[in-house]
Amino acid sequence: MGLIEVQNVSFAYSDRPVVDDVSLTVEAGEFLGLVGPNGSGKTTLLELMIGLRKPDRGSVRLFGEPAHASAERDRVGFVPQNVGDTTGEMPVTVREVVRMGRYPHRLIGRFRDADRTAVTDALRRVDITDLADRRVGRLSGGQRQRVFIARALAADADLLALDEPTVGVDAESREAFYTLLQELNDEGITIILIEHDIGVVTTHASEIACLNRELFFHGDPEAFVETNALADAYGGTQSIVHHDH
């Protein structure tokens, strides 16, 4: 049984279909890269997978339960797009954000030792212990991404879902960030990553799903490079952005 099972799923915003009859399975321990052109339904598919949306047709099972009603959603760590914009002027510190990872487990009542240890370990794991008392809004994009990862780690998440996490982050930090993701994946955390940079995905992911409303390809990176799935998905007209960092 897969960690996430997507079966014949379709989803439309009013009458505009964005995901059309997609089926795929994410196994535990996988590093799945989701690629596709802008507006291809990547974000929507990710939201369907972690239960933020309910499919119009088909079914999504997360940890063996219908995704939108799964009682184990606290095992999901989500890193949204543009984390820079969401934090704004709120004077919240790094430690306060990482502590949020424990909140779904302990909505009320005092923090136990286990909670405090989880927070300390998470800060140390992504190397932001010395930023703990800084304001999140004053951090750079790369540092902020680490805060969100630490929050997911503090939650004991075994699934990390990331939606274009490195938009607006400079090249060097991006590389360090993807190395961190790879390490976390090696430690057993399942990762789903939406990324426009095909180079990053083929380097780090163990599986690739190429989407443009329909699923054009699902398999390992080596096979992906040899097919025409990318050109097909992009309609063959757009040039593919490929960076070598």
């Binding site: 972690i50 239960g51 933020l52 799964s70 009682a71 184990e72 959603r73 606290d74 999901v76 760590g77 989500f78 890193v79 949204p80 969401t86 934090t87 709120m90 919240v92 306060e96 954000v97 949020m100 909140y103 779904p104 302990r106 909505l107 009320i108 969100f148 929050r151 939650a155 879902a161």
Partner: peptide, 19 residues
């Protein structure tokens, strides 16, 4: 307090974690 802080900081993340 805890769910409200979480939602204020990151509403989508809060929903994703089941709040």
């Amino acid at each position: 307090y805890r769910p409200l802080v979480y939602i204020t900081f990151d509403e989508v993340g809060a929903r994703a974690s089941g709040i």
